[in-house]
């Protein structure tokens, strides 16, 4: 079962320090989770902390978990996106994930300097990610030689122009950075609309869904898997995680006291109980195929992850890419002979 933790940008602390984020992801790793995701909160006035440099700065923290950052896909040039994550994926040793944000440019059009958002932001986003993936593929995995006696650092036969000419982008390529260690970073798509579901079905390695019951989760998963198959993708190529707010306590009563104090925030599914009760519930969902795992949205990360860490779990594995950890296939390079 896959477990991730999401940290919305709305929770950016008043004093933004690296120490705060280091502690946060260390807690995630100790709780036995697979990845920490830094997600832009919706709305035009939320803090614009840029998740890409944030996860690059967290690459040096000695944990093996994956690190994801939201990218405003409807307002990004493919070359910049490809270049940034080619670097971040290398710096993290193949632990990076792109979280697709399909609404930033619409909600924040005025800040980005648009008089109006693009006519069809979803079509632009699709083309942006397709073009970005071409740029990641523009270097084959064996393009770097470092052949000192032969005098060749790279093999030019393994580096390709992409010559992309589309509706929104014209990009010649190649990228000026080697292919990410994972081939492509893991692509994560939060599903909140028909458009984002369709986007997830085409591109997502991981889809995040927000049903409020187990039955709703089962049908949402089935709907996504059907669309995935419609795009000719294998069903094993996608992991579907359910958003879950864990309100934990060492005892049921303690958890309930916390829940009463917190109240219901937003529409996400809540779980109130002890860590082992949470584990039981997750196993039940897993047993009926309601999802592949959960994306935890904790109210108080140190408390909830501290409690989760008390459960027995496999220790955080180092030296593994995020794709390996999630048992996701490595993308085949379209330019490889």
């Amino acid at each position: 079962m896959i477990l991730t933790a999401s940290f919305p940008s709305a929770d950016t602390p008043p004093a933004i320090t690296l120490a705060h984020y280091r502690a946060l992801i260390t807690g995630v790793a100790h709780a036995g989770l697979d990845a920490a995701l830094f997600v832009r909160s919706p709305g035009p006035a939320t803090p614009m902390l840029d998740g890409a440099p944030l996860i690059a700065a967290l690459a040096s923290v000695p944990v093996g978990i994956g690190l994801g950052a939201s990218v405003p896909l409807d307002h990004t040039e493919p070359f910049h996106l490809a270049r940034a994550f080619a670097a971040i994926d290398r710096l993290t040793g193949g632990r990076s994930a792109v979280i697709v944000d399909l609404t930033a440019g619409v909600e924040r059009a005025a800040q980005f300097g648009h008089v109006a958002p693009p006519d069809d932001p979803d079509a632009r986003a699709v083309e942006c990610l397709e073009t970005t993936a071409k740029l990641w593929d523009s270097w084959e995995d064996d393009a770097i030689l470092v052949d000192r006696p032969g005098g060749l650092f790279t093999n030019p036969d393994r580096i390709h122009r992409i010559n992309h000419e589309g509706m929104y982008f014209t990009v010649r390529g190649p990228l000026n950075a080697p292919r990410p260690l994972q081939g492509w970073p893991v692509i994560i798509v939060p599903v909140a609309s028909a458009e984002s579901r369709s986007f997830a079905a085409q591109f997502a390695d991981v889809a995040l869904i927000a049903p409020t019951t187990r039955d709703a989760a089962q049908s949402a998963c089935a709907a996504i898997r059907e669309q995935v198959a419609g795009h000719g993708r294998r069903l094993q190529a996608i992991r579907i995680l359910v958003d879950l707010v864990p309100i934990l306590g060492a005892t049921t009563a303690e958890a309930q006291r916390r829940a009463d104090a917190i109240g219901q925030h937003g529409s996400a599914l809540q779980f109130v109980g002890t860590p082992s009760q949470l584990r039981t519930m997750m196993r039940e969902w897993d047993a009926v195929g309601a999802c592949d795992g959960f994306n935890l949205l904790p109210h108080d990360p140190p408390v909830d992850f501290g409690l989760l860490a008390t459960l027995p779990h496999t220790p955080d594995a180092a030296g593994m890419t995020l794709r390996d950890r999630l048992r996701l296939p490595r993308p085949v390079n379209r330019y490889a002979a």
């Binding site: 890409a52 440099p53 944030l54 690059a56 700065a57 690459a59 040096s60 070359f79 270049r83 940034a84 080619a86 670097a87 971040i88 290398r90 710096l91 770097i144 030689l145 005098g151 060749l152 650092f153 790279t154 093999n155 030019p156 580096i159 122009r161 390529g173 190649p174 990228l175 000026n176 950075a177 080697p178």
Partner: peptide, 27 residues
Amino acid sequence: LAARESRGRVVGEVAINNLDPVSVCAA
């Protein structure tokens, strides 16, 4: 913001460009 090319081919005899500067600086 472009690979180093000579007559349409990447120059293999030189090292690669710097990685993305903001990412390197953050690290």
